[in-house]
């Protein structure tokens, strides 16, 4: 993949508008769901303090449209319920919100055209999903989810469990979505041009696009490290 991705593209095809063909939907949505599930399993396996369950949602929302991304998000939570339990289903609205913000931001508002806009959009997705996840976490889990981000909740709990859960959720969600967005960008660089050209993403053909994607991931890593390590246990 690296060799293909590293090839300088001779000409960037025009962005393809209009509804996506059925074949592309049937190919990309299950792939997006599987990527969400797989990345989430991988970070759990590595013990990383992030979720990464929206890389595929980003791909579907950017390349197919916001509502296809939302479907991929819902299906991710449904598929996740089989091995991980039904509590997964309760977070489906969060994945839907991520898809809608990403999809409309990139496809309607054109925020994916510049690197800065793309980064800003990922941050907005992180804030929106962090805020949306908070009431679910509070109502179902009492403010804790068994995720390393609970350290932040525990540290700030004296300020009130609601505020602590909100801060914890947003602070971990923002770097998570930045990393997911840039990981998704790295994946689009490896997809066929006819598919990748369905969305206007940061202009960085070939190695440059990958370099920007990796740069974004590094920024996300730094933010994640700050989120988890900067706040000492209370």
């Amino acid at each position: 993949m690296t060799a293909d991705a590293a090839k300088p593209s001779v000409a960037t095809p025009a962005v393809r508008h209009g509804p996506p063909p059925t074949a592309l939907i049937v190919a990309l949505v299950p792939l997006a769901v599987a990527v969400n599930f797989l990345a989430n399993s991988l970070v759990a396996l590595l013990g990383l303090p992030i979720y990464l369950d929206t890389i595929g949602t980003f791909l579907a929302a950017a390349l197919l449209g916001p509502w296809w991304g939302a479907l991929a998000g819902v299906l991710t939570n449904v598929v996740g319920a089989f091995p991980n339990g039904v509590a997964n289903l309760l977070f489906a609205p969060v994945n839907v919100a991520a898809a809608l913000v990403w999809g409309y931001g990139i496809r309607r508002l054109g925020l994916g055209q510049a690197v800065l806009g793309f980064f800003g959009l990922a941050v907005v997705v992180g804030v929106v999903t962090g805020v949306l996840a908070t009431p679910i976490v509070l109502l179902v889990f009492g403010g804790a989810t068994g995720h390393p981000s609970d350290l932040i909740t525990a540290t700030l709990a004296s300020f009130g469990i609601e505020r602590a859960a909100l801060v914890s959720s947003v602070v971990t969600s923002v770097p998570d979505k930045v990393i997911a967005g840039y990981a998704g960008l790295a994946i689009t660089a490896a997809l066929p041009v006819a598919v990748a050209s369905r969305a206007v993403l940061p202009e960085a053909p070939g190695t440059r696009r990958l370099a920007i994607a990796l740069g974004g991931i590094v920024v996300g890593v730094i933010l994640a490290a700050v989120a988890v390590l900067a706040l000492p246990p209370g």
């Binding site: 074949a23 049937v26 190919a27 990309l28 792939l31 599987a34 590595l46 994946i187 490896a190 990796l214």
Partner: peptide, 30 residues
């Protein structure tokens, strides 16, 4: 690769390869 550094090098080839597999599957479905 360990930690976050292991994610992208592991995921990107898997997804790129799977997309081709899915395209073949969709042709069969069509």
């Amino acid at each position: 690769g360990r930690g976050l550094g292991a994610l992208a090098p592991a995921l990107v080839p898997v997804v790129a390869g799977s997309f081709e597999r899915m395209t073949t599957l969709v042709l069969a479905l069509e």
